[in-house]
Structures are given as structure tokens and as C-alpha cells.
Simulated assay, not measured.
Amino acid sequence: MVGCCALFAAILAAGPLAAQQVVLVGGAFFPPYVLKAEQSQHAGLLPQLLDALNRAQSEFRFIVRPTSIPRRYRDLEAGRIDMSMFENPLWGWQDIAHSVVDMGLEDAEVFVARLAPGRGQDYFMRLRGKRLALFNGYHYGFADFNSDPQFLAKNFNATLSYSHDSNLLMVLHGRADIALATRSYVSDFLQRHRQYAGQLLVSQRVDQRYRHQVLLRPAAPISAAQLGQLFEQLRRNGQLAAIFTPLQVEVRSGVADSSVAAGVTD
């Protein structure tokens, strides 16, 4: 009898957790948001955000499922993931069925050069003739979002890698003239490598501005309206700022439409 009571109590205790709906969030390598796709539940800003979302309510459980930059939209359409975070409208997802939630976060892709005597912001006005260090597979505004490696190498003398650290180090060691990275990544890099403080020139010119959004698949366990309300809750209680402002990601003071349904079927 005691054993039955203990089992019944355990079932009751596990009930709320078991009733939670699991929401699978794509984790594609996008530092400093996701540092290691294969270990994305342990690295970057995304796990901190999901932890805050999980603590803010008990109906849903947000879990990272690793994906990749090229594969994430296919995974979303196939239902392998329910959402993809930190998306930008210019990245080619308009033709898949989705809903959109504005995260209320803003970052920017900037140009970075080595600080040198007489070198100022005018150095970034002209890219032709300079050696660029770019991330393979990324879409850049200056190149009309054409990510083809041959196009970038031919037209912009670009060296492509799979490491932002390598690109910035190429600039620091004189093997490239300009690298591109998000403002948040440059901030993270300088926090991790304090020996390079004062050696980088960061552009005021912005290649593209990211107003981060979430893509939800139509059959996701959580709706755009529900997710938008959660983000607004985290914005109001300061948790978004605590997670993102240390790396210079702007938390906007207000989001006009915190959740926007934008189903596309063609």
C-alpha cells in the first residue's frame, strides 16, 4: 500500500512536466548566438534565452535541436524543428509557410580593419582593391546577398572561412584588410582576447542591420501570439537586456507588433 501511494505521488509530481509541449528550436552555427551547432544546448546566447523562456512559463519546454545554416529552412518545412530564431527577412525564407515573431532585438553586421596611423572611417567606404575575409555561406548586403564563394572571390578578392575568429585574426596579422562580423561577435571576440584591445577599427558603416525575428512552422506547438507575449514579458522584466546587452545587441524599448502571423503558401 505504501508503495502504491509513493508511485501515485510520483506520477502526480511528474504530471505537469509530462504535460509540457516540447518546442524544438533550430541551433545553427551563428556566433555568438549559437557557438557550436553540435553542442548548441551548452553554448552561446540561444541557450540563455531558452532557459529564460522555460523559466517564464510551464506550458512549453524549449529545447535546442542542432541544424545548420544551409539546412535549417528544410528542417523547418519538414517539421524537424518548430522554429528558427535570429532570422532576417532578407535571407530567403519568404516562400515557405511560416509565422513570424519580432524578438525585439537588433544587431548589425559591421566592417572591421586593423587600426593603423591615419586610418579612419573613410577606409570602409570603398571595398574594391581590398582583401576581404568572409564567412562561407553567409549573405552580405554589399554583395547583394549573393553567397556564392566563386562570385565573392572573383568580385571582392574574398577569402572564405568557417571561423569568425580566423577572419579577425587575419585582419590583425595583416593577411586580410577587412573582415565582416556582427557587432555582437566583435564585442565577444574582444572580451575573449583582451590582448587585442585597441587594435581593431570597427566601422560606423553597417553592411546590414538585423532586426531578429523567429520563424514558426504552421503546426508548431506554440503560436506566434503566445511566443510574442513571452518575448514581451522577458523584455519588460529586463531578462532580454540581461542576456543580450553585454554583447551590444540592442533590446528595443518597444515592439509595435510583438507577434505577426505571416503565412505563405506558394
Results as ranks from 00 to 15, higher is better:
residue 1 M to D: 14
residue 2 V to K: 11
residue 2 V to A: 14
residue 4 C to H: 12
residue 4 C to F: 12
residue 9 A to K: 10
residue 10 A to G: 12
residue 11 I to Y: 10
residue 13 A to L: 15
residue 14 A to F: 09
residue 15 G to H: 08
residue 15 G to T: 08
residue 17 L to W: 11
residue 20 Q to D: 04
residue 20 Q to H: 05
residue 21 Q to S: 14
residue 22 V to G: 04
residue 22 V to L: 10
residue 24 L to S: 14
residue 27 G to I: 03
residue 28 A to M: 07
residue 29 F to D: 08
residue 31 P to V: 04
residue 33 Y to W: 03
residue 34 V to F: 00
residue 35 L to F: 04
residue 36 K to I: 07
residue 36 K to L: 12
residue 36 K to N: 14
residue 36 K to C: 05
residue 40 S to E: 10
residue 41 Q to E: 14
residue 41 Q to P: 01
residue 42 H to I: 03
residue 45 L to Q: 07
residue 50 L to A: 05
residue 51 D to E: 12
residue 54 N to Y: 00
residue 56 A to G: 03
residue 57 Q to P: 02
residue 58 S to T: 09
residue 58 S to L: 06
residue 59 E to M: 00
residue 61 R to Q: 10
residue 64 V to M: 07
residue 65 R to L: 10
residue 70 P to F: 01
residue 72 R to S: 04
residue 74 R to P: 01
residue 74 R to Y: 05
residue 79 G to N: 08
residue 80 R to T: 05
residue 82 D to F: 01
residue 83 M to H: 01
residue 83 M to S: 12
residue 84 S to N: 13
residue 88 N to M: 08
residue 88 N to Q: 08
residue 89 P to Y: 04
residue 92 G to M: 08
residue 93 W to E: 15
residue 94 Q to Y: 09
residue 94 Q to G: 13
residue 98 H to P: 01
residue 100 V to A: 09
residue 101 V to L: 09
residue 102 D to N: 15
residue 103 M to D: 10
residue 105 L to R: 14
residue 106 E to K: 15
residue 107 D to T: 14
residue 108 A to D: 11
residue 108 A to N: 13
residue 110 V to L: 14
residue 110 V to P: 04
residue 110 V to R: 15
residue 116 A to S: 13
residue 116 A to H: 07
residue 117 P to R: 09
residue 119 R to A: 09
residue 120 G to C: 06
residue 124 F to T: 04
residue 125 M to Y: 06
residue 126 R to S: 09
residue 128 R to C: 00
residue 134 L to P: 01
residue 135 F to C: 03
residue 135 F to V: 14
residue 135 F to S: 07
residue 136 N to R: 14
residue 137 G to L: 07
residue 139 H to D: 08
residue 139 H to C: 07
residue 145 F to H: 13
residue 147 S to M: 09
residue 148 D to L: 11
residue 151 F to P: 04
residue 151 F to K: 10
residue 155 N to L: 08
residue 160 L to T: 03
residue 160 L to N: 05
residue 162 Y to W: 07
residue 170 M to K: 09
residue 170 M to Y: 02
residue 171 V to P: 00
residue 186 V to H: 01
residue 186 V to I: 13
residue 188 D to I: 00
residue 189 F to V: 05
residue 190 L to V: 05
residue 190 L to M: 13
residue 191 Q to C: 06
residue 191 Q to V: 06
residue 193 H to Q: 12
residue 193 H to G: 05
residue 194 R to Q: 15
residue 195 Q to N: 11
residue 196 Y to F: 15
residue 198 G to P: 03
residue 201 L to I: 09
residue 202 V to E: 10
residue 203 S to G: 11
residue 203 S to F: 04
residue 205 R to C: 02
residue 205 R to Y: 06
residue 206 V to E: 05
residue 206 V to G: 01
residue 206 V to M: 05
residue 207 D to T: 06
residue 208 Q to C: 02
residue 211 R to E: 15
residue 213 Q to E: 12
residue 215 L to D: 03
residue 217 R to P: 00
residue 222 I to Q: 03
residue 226 Q to R: 12
residue 226 Q to P: 00
residue 227 L to E: 03
residue 228 G to D: 05
residue 228 G to V: 03
residue 230 L to V: 03
residue 232 E to L: 08
residue 233 Q to W: 00
residue 239 Q to E: 15
residue 239 Q to T: 12
residue 240 L to R: 05
residue 241 A to V: 08
residue 241 A to K: 14
residue 244 F to A: 07
residue 245 T to E: 14
residue 256 A to H: 10
residue 265 T to C: 10
residue 265 T to F: 13
residue 266 D to Q: 13
